[in-house]
Nucleic acid binder design. Structure first.
Lengths: 333, 333
DNA sequence: TTGAAAGCGCTAACAG
DNA sequence: CTGTTAGCGCTTTCAA
């Protein structure tokens, strides 16, 4: 395989000149540049990026840590990240953790072995193991889509409080007063944020929030079904269910259907994320659309800035939500 | 940052010994090994993988080329690939092509610049650009999940003919004789394979296949809707629709619902892939489950073998399907 | 504008 | 079993 030396001989210049002609064309004379380019073409030279990266001490890659890549919301975010990374000349290494902390730490360790230049974490946890986190200053790690309450990383995330509030206000506006909640894991900061938004809407409307109306899911279809079953068993039954993602809402709708009830006639249901399927459920789901593409762009931009040693001005960047009203919500009967 | 030299000095051995103690512990004495390990710990040494990979002329990474990562079927496959890759000490580089040939070729080019050791292509096309494909023998490129008819790459894929045949036989067994098809793009080998399976089932049952019963989609929800509308307009109307993926089946079901008809009472619908949502549609979808995890394992194993210069014994590896019967199919009225 | 030379951190002969 | 030595292919001073 042709290397830089092959080209330099062919062009009758030094290897340094070849390198310059390719990397900083403006510093070599037009004549030389052309000779080099011709030699490159003639020899079929392809620069060895491993050598280049090694020498420049940068891998030009990011690692995306994701609990489950087959979750459509995450894959949309990853798609945005990859797009932005590519525009900046970076590759994306996939780190599917399956929610396993050990796997996550093992993958995050690659930051210290120069296998990747930065980490975009889609879970709430700081990814490095305790022995790895003895940081000298600012580590190139950023969180995307989650709420991080320990200030361990900067974040790019949705206005979760506002979004949850908007959803609940939408239901209150329709006339609902008894609204069930299918929330996320209770120990997650994201859950807290959304619950706060929900509570704020209730409070502003002068409605009381009852503990039995709050159930917990793990963002899976199945947990949506289970939680919905619990809410359906309440007396009086809630007339609406706010779910913290679309999958749980879909599970809840199936459970409601199974109970012989109808959405939205008997019960309104809302989701969160606006995955592609949300428009194709029966009935189509009222939900919150997140700017997934923007998440990726901002996460990459901030990570690049951090790698340049610039701490982000605002540690937590909040992006706007969009309420998407479809047919799964209506006036209570 | 501590490097191998730091450790060698600290342990009082040569750098070569440090390298050996870490890479092939069995060839150094127990005593030396321990001294080295202690020095590693003391110095906080983390091997520089970029240097290691550069020196060994391997990146220890694969690139997965995928048309659209937010398609749940692909993300399940990728998840399997990542798992298998990790077990072999490889990382996965994500190559989301958006179906754009130029992007695909640009990403595939990374094979020649030593940025990746092999490519797993999830589309049917050979990924290298014409000027890149002047191969010296066996290129480390494998296709996963698709049908490739030009023999440009080995493949790991489903028994698509058998699966489509099983689906149609299932419908015929229920008593359907007029079955509409929502196929994939007509120029795709995968479409041809599945259509052959469908035709075989019809023929075996002595049923005629009418051209107007065959429509074409692009695997999107929307194309399923459009195609279903066309099939619904036929007289006599088909009593069943076979769709070449779950998304199109979901789109078709929505269109059928919109026409005031019901699944499966008026029309049976089948999908393909068994994505997670297929169990949560209304009614739950009869479909074909693909062994996505096995795809990844086999693709990685074969790629590794190819990188060792071993051409796969059978160029095309076929994995078994599983027919999943749910409630979207029933006897015709 | 160009070339010579040093060297990134590591592995792999080759001796001993 | 261990050390010496020679690079991998490239970028980057430093001089010219």
């Amino acid at each position: 395989m042709a290397n830089i030396r092959t080209v330099s001989k062919l062009a009758g210049v030094s290897v340094a000149t070849v390198s310059r002609a390719l990397r900083k064309p403006e510093v070599v004379s037009a004549d030389t540049r052309e000779r080099v380019l011709r030699a490159v073409k003639e020899s079929g030279y392809k620069p060895n990026m491993m050598a280049r990266n090694f020498r420049s001490r940068k891998s030009f890659s990011f690692m995306v840590l994701v609990p489950d890549i087959s979750n459509p919301f995450f894959s949309m975010v990853i798609s945005g990240i990859q797009k932005a990374a590519k525009e900046s000349g970076y590759s994306v290494l996939l780190g599917n953790t399956m929610g396993d902390v050990a796997v996550e730490q093992e993958l995050a360790h690659m930051l210290h072995t120069s296998q990747t230049d930065g980490i975009i974490q889609l879970s709430s946890r700081f990814p490095l193991s305790p022995e790895d986190r003895d940081s000298e200053g600012l580590l190139p790690i950023i969180n995307c889509c989650e709420v991080v309450d320990d200030d361990s990383m900067p974040t790019v995330a949705l206005d979760n409080i506002g979004a949850a509030r908007a959803l609940t206000e939408h239901l209150i506006g329709l006339g609902h007063t008894r609204i069930g909640l299918i929330a996320g894991p209770h120990d997650s900061p994201l859950t807290s944020a959304r619950m706060a938004g929900h509570a704020a809407a209730l409070k502003a409307a002068g409605l009381a929030s009852a503990p039995e109306l709050v159930t917990e899911g793990d963002y899976s279809f199945a947990s949506g079904e289970t939680a919905a079953a619990a809410l359906l068993a309440l007396a009086p039954r809630p007339t609406a269910m706010v779910c913290f993602n679309d999958e749980m809402a879909i599970g809840a709708m199936q459970q409601i259907r199974r109970a012989g009830l109808s959405v939205p006639a008997d019960i309104s249901v809302t989701g969160f994320d606006d995955i592609a399927f949300a428009a194709y459920t029966d009935p189509p789901l009222t939900t919150i659309a997140q700017p997934t593409e923007d998440f990726g762009a901002h996460a990459v931009a901030r990570l690049l800035a951090m790698m340049d040693g610039k701490a982000p001005a605002e540690k937590h960047l909040t992006l706007p939500y969009r309420l998407v009203v479809r047919e799964s919500t209506a006036k209570p009967r």
